[in-house]
Amino acid sequence: MLKIEKLESGYGAMQVLWQPSLEVSRGSITALLGPNGAGKSTLLSTVLNSVKPWGGKVYYKGEDVTYTPSHKKVHKGMALVPEGKHLFPNMTVYENLAMGAYLDKALAHKSESLDLVYTLFPRLKERHSQMAGLLSGGEQQMVTISRSLMTKPELIMLDEPSQGLAPKLVSEVFETIRKMKYDIGLTILLVEQNVDASLDSADYVYIMHEGSIKAEGVTEKIKESKDITSTYLGV
């Protein structure tokens, strides 16, 4: 579904990504784990091209999309749930969700997408006319995830969706991620710092450190390898 080859990028003169390569197969949950500052968020931003790639390749469904503009990638079915939410605070919950259906393709499925997210998060239906900026942190995260679902994606990339949430909400977020895979049939690339919860949900795991991939494997193998977990994940 998504294939990244030796991607390079950074900010100004500082290189952050040092040729990580990874692959996300259709219908899977692939987790990208690693400590703070490993370059995980930069990787997702570079894949969407909101940070310009310096080198390497990004393939989506076999097509080279390395330098395709972000809005065209969203049109092709790639969605990003950005770190730090990035909601429209002075718009209502409904208007935020409607913005997710901004592109023609998504607009055609607006009402069914809306049904879907209101089924996933009934609380958003209750709050649909509230300003998004006034919601609690957990509710805002629900809006951010739902807004991405409104774009009618096939691949959804989540950047630390459990960050800053209370433990009960964290498990709710991971429950939602599993539903995206099993009920909606999405392909998921999950960037997380919450190692335990991620290892419980993921099919395949990559470990990133200092801008490159240090280890990878099916989840069970990673869990068993004490070397890897203690060196990079602090478990």
Partner: peptide, 9 residues
Amino acid sequence: EGARVCGVN
């Protein structure tokens, strides 16, 4: 950034 991930150019 929010606009970008919604597909706004």
